[in-house]
Design a protein around this nucleic acid. Structure first.
Length: 637
RNA sequence: GCCAAUGUAGCUCAGUUGGCAGAGCAGCUCACUCGUAAUGAGCAGGCCAGCGGUUCGAAUCCGCUCAUUGGCUCCA
């Protein structure tokens, strides 16, 4: 009898050594159909491999996160087979999985996208044929013989040690580590995306190859949804909307450093007003530290040694300075002045700090990757006993903030990396503090073993936007290094000095980046409280202009952001322009409205409510704004 | 930083083989004063990213630089 353990702890018995496929079949036929591979001892393997007695096996189905990558790799092979069939002179090089799909670099005549339909047709034929992927392990010598007509494969084989694994589907063989899906039929929805040039081994002295990009899903619906998402993302691109809505811009004079326009700043301030309100509620104070500090400080914090290539430095009066890439060292100086009583802890100090980091030029991208940005930072100093409650407090605060924007989120815990400082006991205690807070919080979390900072474990918060993309924004990092380096202390109940525990945390992360995420999340149609212009007033004719300007002042006195469109254009035209600018409330002022002292209000869904009284209008608008309702269409009348 | 592509009016984009710099929208002026997604006419707007080269002549060809985009790399 051969015994196999499954992840839920259950055991299965077999009369002979089973393959992964046998194990899957022993559960159910339907389950077996959705299996793509298995994990044994942390290693991904083909279902066709046999599993020894007493082994723990995790079967990977199309629902598991690893499945998509495995299948896409198989899809790359299928595409290569299709291209080989259509272009027999093509020589294959490498075909890895990348985010959102895969590519294969092929030495062949240059092709354009017009060649895609034929290739896709051939791919679909191969998929329908449900060709099994057959793994074979041979010696290096045999491999060299086998691939003698494929020069790039020979070069790859030369660089490999030991035995070589091959995968065959139909009459097509490719060198590959694996694993692969059981048969081509599982790659149901394959689509080629684009083709570009690439050099063999990224060296322009080498041959120019065709890099054909594609993506693949387990079913056509998912592929369609993905293509729709990509299309939708393009429309929402914050760089485009930032220009269209006059929110921000970039200039050659300061690459990677955004300029915020008046409208962008209106949103920025609304965002930070909200941030301050939430932090005050949770007992934070706000501080501000200089952006330029001298070399002594950065040497003490360790940044001079470890982070210098990312720092902007300067020398003034023969003293070296650096512009801060992080707010923490300045914050340390403030806390060090105090050495407070344990009764004053936890001490929560927030700082919207402007930091500069010299990111590589090729990494810059709109507001998402910049060189100057604000962190919605806070440093919390506490006794070790307070870790649990403080982490929980931060999680609750962050959840509240994301909820306001209708953003769902998930949590990830990163533990001690190989290269780290501090004792085993410190790490144990710190990690346990985070873990227990996460357990109580109860949302569930992933663990990234060894992915923590060298100075402490951390919790990352990933949000999910309106079209399903995820972004890492919030982070809670425990720091066991800086309190030591800055010799921070507090006075305990025993009247002795003790070392406080410290965390860095952010909710937005980079305010600039979060701003960009919000632009894309809302596609420029912001909720009323956030909208740069909350209401626009449209006078019917020039005689009403003076009255309209007076109304604007009155509404502004109520704290509403209002514009007047006093151009000599038709009403149709002004309505259209206001809609395109996504102004949530469009108020038309004609003779009737002036006489009755009322508004005709149009919202972005196209509905018009006539004769809204001033009181009703203010009540609806102010209620929405103060509640920070996550809704861009207020309801009148 | 590396590889590739791109850079023309405020915005979106044409510009042929090297031969006078173009359109739509926005802007300004005039007329119209309009009831919920584009009123009409006219005018103005440019060191064709920058620097250098080839040429009788360069937006166009070549080189360098800068910026942007995509990919890679990086993320103490």
């Amino acid at each position: 009898m051969v015994k196999i353990t499954l992840p839920d702890g259950s055991e299965r018995e077999f009369t002979e050594t089973p393959t992964g496929a046998d194990i899957a079949l022993s559960i159910s036929e339907g389950f077996a159909r959705s299996c793509v591979a298995m994990e044994v001892g942390g290693q991904l393997m083909d279902l066709s491999e046999t599993v020894a007695d007493g082994t723990a096996v995790r079967l990977i189905t199309t629902r598991d996160s690893e499945a998509l990558e495995i299948m896409r790799h198989s899809a790359a092979h299928i595409m290569a087979q299709a291209i080989k069939n259509l272009y027999p002179m093509a020589h294959l090089t490498i075909g890895p999985v990348v985010e959102g799909g895969f590519y294969y670099d092929i030495d062949m005549e240059p092709i354009g996208e017009e060649a895609f339909p034929a290739i896709e047709k051939e791919i679909n034929r191969l998929v329908k044929a449900k060709l099994p992927f057959v793994r074979q392990v041979i010696s290096k010598e045999a491999a060299l013989e086998r691939f003698k007509s494929e020069p790039y494969k020979l070069e790859l084989i030369e660089g490999l040690e030991g035995t070589i694994s091959l995968y065959t589907q139909g009459d097509f063989v490719d060198l590959c580590r694996g694993p692969h899906i059981p048969h081509t039929g599982l790659a149901k929805a394959v689509k080629l995306l684009r083709v570009s040039g690439a050099y063999w081994r990224a060296d322009q002295n080498n041959a120019q190859l065709q890099r054909v990009y594609g993506t693949a899903f387990f079913d056509k619906k998912e592929l369609k949804a993905h293509l729709h998402m990509v299309e939708e993302a393009k429309k929402r691109d914050h760089r485009k909307l930032g220009t269209q809505l006059d929110l921000f811009s970039f200039h050659d004079e300061a690459p990677g450093m955004p300029f915020f326009h008046a409208k962008g700043m209106a949103m920025w301030n609304a965002l930070l007003d909200y941030w301050r309100e939430e932090h005050r509620k949770d007992g934070y104070v706000e501080t501000k530290t200089p952006i330029m500090l001298n070399r002594d400080l950065w040497e003490r914090s360790g940044h001079w040694e470890n982070y210098r290539e990312n720092m902007y430095t300067s020398s003034v009066d023969e003293i070296d300075y650096a512009i801060k890439p992080m707010n923490c060292p300045g914050g340390m100086l403030l806390f060090r002045m105090k050495s407070p009583s344990y009764r004053e802890l936890p001490y929560r100090a927030g700082e919207i700090g402007l930091v500069h980091r010299h990111e590589l030029s090729g990494a810059l991208s709109g507001l998402f990757r910049v060189r100057a940005f604000h962190q919605d930072d806070a440093h919390i100093f506490m006794t070790p006993e307070q870790i649990h409650d403080e982490i929980l407090g931060v999680l609750n605060l962050a959840a509240r903030v994301y909820q306001t924007f209708g953003l769902d989120f998930h949590l990830e815990l990163s533990t001690r990396p190989k290269k780290s400082i501090g004792s085993d006991e410190q790490w144990e205690k710190a990690t346990e503090g985070l873990r227990s807070a996460l357990d109580i919080y109860g949302k569930g979390y992933m663990i990234n073993e060894g992915d923590g900072a060298f100075y402490g474990p951390k919790i990352d918060i990933h949000i999910k936007d309106a079209i399903g993309r995820t972004w890492q924004c919030g982070t809670i990092q425990l720091d066991m290094s800086l309190p030591e380096r800055f010799d921070l202390t507090y006075i305990g109940a025993d009247n002795e000095k003790h070392r406080p525990v410290m965390i860095h945390r952010v909710a937005f992360g980079s305010v600039e980046r979060f701003f960009g995420i919000l632009v894309e999340h809302y596609a420029g149609r912001f909720p009323l409280w956030l909208a740069p212009v909350q209401a626009v007033l449209l006078p019917m004719n020039d005689d009403l202009l003076a009255y309209t300007v007076q109304v604007k002042r009155e509404l502004e006195a109520e704290g509403i952001r209002v514009d007047v469109d006093g151009r000599g254009e038709s009403l149709k035209r002004k309505v259209r322009d206001a809609q395109l600018q996504q102004v949530p409330v469009i108020i038309t002022i004609g003779e009737k409205e002036r006489e009755a002292g009322v508004f005709s209000v149009r919202t972005l869904d196209g509905t018009v409510t006539y004769g809204v009284s001033r009181e009703d209008f203010l009540s609806v608008v102010k209620t929405d704004i103060h509640a920070r309702k996550n809704e861009s269409v207020p309801v009148f009348g």
